[in-house]
Simulated scan of single mutants.
Amino acid sequence: MSSHAYPGRADMSTVVDAARRGDRAAVDELVSHCLPLVYNIVGRALNRSADVDDVVQNTMLSVVRGLPGVREPQLFRSWLVAVTMNEIRTHTQRRHTTPAPPEDIDNVIDPRADFEDLTLTQLRLADQRREVVLATRWLDDDHRHLLSLWWLVEAGHLSRADLVDALKLAPHHVTVRVSRMKAQLDTARLVVRALTARPGCAGLADTASGWDRRPAPVWRKRFA
């Protein structure tokens, strides 16, 4: 079995149930299957590789400690995603994440996890990978967090139900949020494209007066 694939729903429920009862081998197996998914969610939601490792570690500690409270093993994956998102929100509230410089984009998520290329290929964005990754840094925190899940839904690593459960919203509200997030991402991609165009635009350069060269939602709005 691939280290990046989950067991079937029935098999996962068996492993979760055993882990809940304190079976160390089951806990280890569960963690090994959780880790790539958690790395990808956190890696896309945050911008600094050092922060990714910290948040992933905190998430896995919360998962292991919270296992006894998982009453419905078949819903474990949705619970896992919700725990991960809670850790991301906590981290974001505690410390504003400073965007990494463009040359570090390949180090944002753990190199052992291969969802990044797979997801962007399935979205037919492989040739624009750098632009998309850079664009995520211009998003509002909430939209960037949602994008980290939406990419995995599009690639088939999470279900629509997982997304709805993790956000704790009605399905139609999730649809509205995804639509707004995608519109903001499109705008951010245009901003990235404009800022990296050569020759540059004199009007855009005037607008950028006072900009500290770090991606930020307020500057996305000004440039857009």
Rank of each mutant, 00 (worst) to 15 (best):
R95W: 01
R95P: 09
H96F: 01
T97P: 15
A100R: 03
A100L: 11
P101Q: 03
P102K: 05
P102M: 06
D104G: 08
I105M: 07
I105P: 08
D106P: 12
N107L: 07
V108F: 03
D110Y: 07
R112A: 15
A113Y: 06
D114P: 11
D114W: 00
F115T: 04
E116M: 00
L118A: 11
T119Q: 01
T121R: 07
Q122P: 11
L123N: 00
L123S: 03
R124N: 04
L125N: 01
A126L: 11
R129V: 01
R130H: 07
V132W: 00
V132A: 08
V133R: 03
R137K: 14
W138M: 04
L139P: 06
D140F: 00
D141N: 07
H143N: 10
R144M: 09
R144P: 09
H145F: 02
L146W: 05
L147K: 08
S148M: 02
L149M: 12
W150L: 05
W151D: 11
W151P: 04
W151R: 06
L152T: 05
L152E: 09
E154T: 05
S159M: 10
R160A: 11
L167W: 02
K168G: 15
K168V: 15
L169T: 01
L169G: 03
L169E: 05
T175A: 11
V176H: 08
V176K: 12
R177N: 15
V178D: 02
S179G: 12
R180Q: 13
K182D: 01
A183S: 14
D186F: 00
T187N: 04
R189Q: 13
R189D: 06
L190R: 13
V192P: 00
V192H: 09
R193W: 03
A194D: 14
L195G: 11
L195R: 09
T196G: 05
A197W: 13
A197L: 12
A197Q: 13
A197E: 15
R198G: 10
G200N: 15
G200R: 14
A202K: 09
A202M: 10
A202V: 06
L204A: 12
A205R: 13
A205T: 14
D206E: 10
A208W: 06
G210T: 07
W211N: 09
W211H: 06
R213V: 11
R213H: 13
R213E: 15
R214D: 13
R214H: 02
A216L: 10
